[in-house]
Design a protein around this nucleic acid. Structure first.
Lengths: 220, 220, 220, 220
DNA sequence: GATGAATGAGTTTTCATTCAT
DNA sequence: GATGAATGAAAACTCATTCAT
């Protein structure tokens, strides 16, 4: 009886484990070999699974790449959401949490950056993958905009909407630029420096809300 | 004799024309089809030239891609250099020229952005192409750093080197981020908005040197 | 006990039902998708049964195809035998019954014709299937020959054996040809016309035994 | 100079020779191995050519099969047309030429019959191949109909159109049936017997135009 | 007995590169 | 120097069969 209850799940768990192994192997390949080098042979060799499995579970290499992209995307958001939850409730804390998490080693690492830009290079060709690269947008962009709007209002800016939009846009662009920096010079990259620059940008926009952790603004 | 004199230049000119046609066709293919879609067949079809020519002139597809990358890179710098030459001599004017040119339609357009990110996706795999994507770095980075150093000194900042480095780093990162923005949403993208945000960043760092074309800083 | 008695038959009935379901699904697939399209996946999907069943019941796809061919063959003969039993006992009536039944919608329909020719295309490769396509021969051929022999003798032909053999051969060839006609132009096909032509052939051979249902021979 | 003139053609001739070699190898494979056994590997092995050639010349296996079908079709008609040209001009001679040629070893041989039925089995699935199997129709059917119409009129039949149509239909169906016969029993098949039966059919329809080479009609 | 996930040999196709012309 | 037919290694994909559950 118990075996009956136990058996079915075992099969399904194994199945799911294989699915995940393929996705992980795919992301590893993309990270190390690029999209072009991510052949079915490379994937199955790394996963230690059989050729047919890719078509069994994903119906072809393209779909597997899509699902891998989606999974990476989900991971990115899970990490970010967790950080926001853990951070203090004030808008400043929330913004800083986003910046620090996005630049943290959990997200901004070689594997991640490599995959990110590899997919982005293909994004234009495959809409399904574009969705993934778009992600830093829709959801995050709105959240960060709302946060900045609160800040802009509390700062009594003349045009809070525009200021908040520019702040959100600029912050995300800066983060994006830092990722590109990291991709090209992973060893020269300094996380603290990147963080400091983003905070400088914010301190420039909202001097009374952000400071350079004790540092003064560039000009007095 | 005369024919000899006549023919030789013609041949060389033709040769060079074919070389360029292949490079242009390659960039077109990368822009439209992505790196993966840029097969030898696609290139020669677009160029209207023969298959063997790629090996004749470039010794293989990979080398052709490299040269295409280099050419694009050169174009980028030529455009930027011309703009810097045309701009006023003050550090502020030089910086603004870089920002406005980098975001101008001459450089930031769909073809350019597509190619840029396509190559960057492959950059890690091929060092020769990485060189190209690196470009916004070495030369430009130093130049912009020197310019900001002049500004930081004239602004009497406490740590002018660090401030200048952060300003250079941040500006380039912001520009980079704007390109990514454009890549993903070419139609929603607003050039003036992007420019304004970069200037906001600069105005935040150097309030007395940069202003938002009459606009005030967000907070007073 | 009772349960035992009850279950056993149920199992066997289920087993047989599954066997038949697989054969029917196979024939459906062959009719709609051709031999090439009749994959194990296609069959089990149509049958709504599990993959392993084919090997459980038939020991592989090839054997299943054979059994399907045999079953179709048996159906053909059952229909024909029933028609001969229902027809009048005279040789003329028997011959006409064969012709009309062979061209009737019960046998000559799209499903049947599609399967018939699909198997025949593979017949040469698999002897086991060839048996099926042969069928219009051995048994039927002899029966029809005997019938024509009776007619030829009653008609006092000079060489009754040869005439009967030719009549049998010709009739079967004509029927065969009509099937091919139907296969290629199922919508243009006219059953009555086909029947009339066969009867014309018979009327030509045995004017005093067959007439065109009131029609005259072509020439007088 | 001469070499120049010679060279170009040489290349084209070689190219064409390879094309034809592939078609021939394909037909050979279909004849011996059936459609299912006609893999790209089988074809190139038989042709002694390289794998890529099939896609170079035909753009894929399917198209190659189509062209092979078309070529066989053309051969069939060329043979038939030649025979009709060589035959006497009278309608009887023309009809007899069709019958004798269709059943001659030039057309009705194992290779031909095998290929014919192999393609027909696939005909329903691929329209392009269906065209081929249709062929005994459109053109030939009309020609034979016109010939019979002349005969029917000269025989003063009551309804010459219908008689001619039935005669054409019946003759083609008989020939078709003889091919099926041959396919299934190539060794038992007797060409003369087949021819005699078709002529019996014609003699039955048009007693004054066709005779069994000195034989009498079955009945008097 | 029944299931369907897993396998891997074999299929078609792509494509950079070669080389005779 | 230019051409494009030819090559074949490697790619993605299919599918009958196996076998643990």
């Amino acid at each position: 009886m118990e075996r009956q209850v136990d058996k079915k799940p075992t099969r399904d768990i194994l199945r799911e484990r294989n699915r995940m192994a393929l996705i992980t192997a795919t992301l590893d390949c993309v990270a190390e070999l690029g999209i072009a080098g991510t052949s079915v042979s490379a994937i199955i060799e790394r996963a230690g699974l059989s050729r047919g499995m890719i078509h069994l579970h994903f119906d072809g290499k393209d779909k597997l790449l899509e699902e891998a992209a989606q999974q990476l995307n989900a991971q990115y958001y899970d990490t970010l959401d967790a950080a926001l939850l853990a951070a203090g409730p004030s808008p400043e804390e929330q913004v800083e949490a986003i910046v620090r998490t996005d630049l943290s080693v959990d997200l901004l690492n070689e594997r991640y950056a490599n995959i990110w830009y590899a997919f982005r290079g293909e994004a234009r060709k495959r809409d399904s993958i574009a969705v993934f690269s778009n992600t830093r947008d829709a959801r995050l962009r709105n959240r960060i905009f709302q946060t900045f709007l609160a800040i802009a209002r509390s700062a009594e800016c003349p045009e809070p909407e525009q200021v908040a939009r520019d702040a959100a846009h600029g912050t995300l662009a800066l983060l994006e630029g830092m990722w590109a920096d990291f991709l090209l010079h992973p060893h020269a990259f300094r996380r603290e420096e990147a963080t400091r620059i983003v905070l400088r940008f914010l301190a420039g926009l909202f001097p009374s809300h952000f400071t350079l952790s004790g540092a003064q603004p560039a000009e007095r």
